[in-house]
Amino acid sequence: MHRLRVLAIALLLLAGATAMGPLVAQPSGSRHALLIQGASGEPRFATMHRGWLDSLAALLVDRFGYDPANVTIVAERPGEGEVHATAENVRTVAGRLAGTLTDADQLLVVFIGHGTGQGDDARFNLVGPDLSVADWRALLDPIRASLVVVDTTSGSFPYLAGLAAPGRIVITATNSPAQQYHTIFPDALVRALESGDTDQNKDGRISVLEAFTAASRLVREHYEQAGILATETAVIDPTGDGKGLLATAEFPSNSPAALWYLDAPRTATTDDPELQKLLARQQALSERIDDLRRRRDSLPEAEFTRQLEALLTELAEVSREVRRRSGE
């Protein structure tokens, strides 16, 4: 019965997304992740970075249901089934992904470690020779999957424009080449993915935008509560134009980052015809609410409120009935 609740909610959101005409639809293929921990330099960073890497991998598998076989780990000190973080190995892994992933798949790439940058170029520190931004671009471009790149390192800002491409979402922990201090963004990202608060719209799923917003918030709080000047400010390029937006920016509800979910896409199915009717009604109401919200500026405020209240009330009643019939 629990499964049905999840299905119903997911259905509504997919419907809403379709109605709003997303630029990037949630791919229907398989979900993959490439987590890369570079050279740490010092034991304390080695422990810290490895901890973030492990937490992230565990979250992807345990919370978001990634197939462990689809989570590739490139590490400074690789464990069993992991890849050593050299440039050569990275090229090999990227080549494999380019060869196997399709347009229907999605790939999350996360850099953890140190970055150093000069002007428009930045180096993510690997074991041995590093790769430049242009090198990384050359490795990622052939991958056809829907791609999200998160560079959590210091000096990550040049990756924002350097990796920008249509349909690709890029997040960097810093918004200026001058920000070269070790970042706490990866820790914040892990904590954001663990927190129930991150699901801003309470739809039961975490989008990349929600994760980015929550992590940015945790970074800001870290510096505010310590009473020190923030040395990092994360930005996101949700559209592939190479321009970074802060978490405080206004994002449209159909922003690609709002529609790229870490959770698995779900399909609502039921063999209970009454329930199926209710689910269809939920979907229809949800679409009408989305439509009404889009037309908000063209309506008098009182009229908008009246219509919204009526729709939300009806949706609440239908949803309650869905939950009742689902046995919750």
Partner: peptide, 24 residues
């Protein structure tokens, strides 16, 4: 609660609260 639902129309807790408030 309507403000909450405007942002999160499918939030079950808010939906239930709305119905409670409205006596339904």
């Amino acid at each position: 609660v309507l403000l909450a639902l405007e942002e999160a129309p499918t939030y079950a807790r808010a939906q239930d609260l709305l119905l409670t408030i409205m006596g339904r």
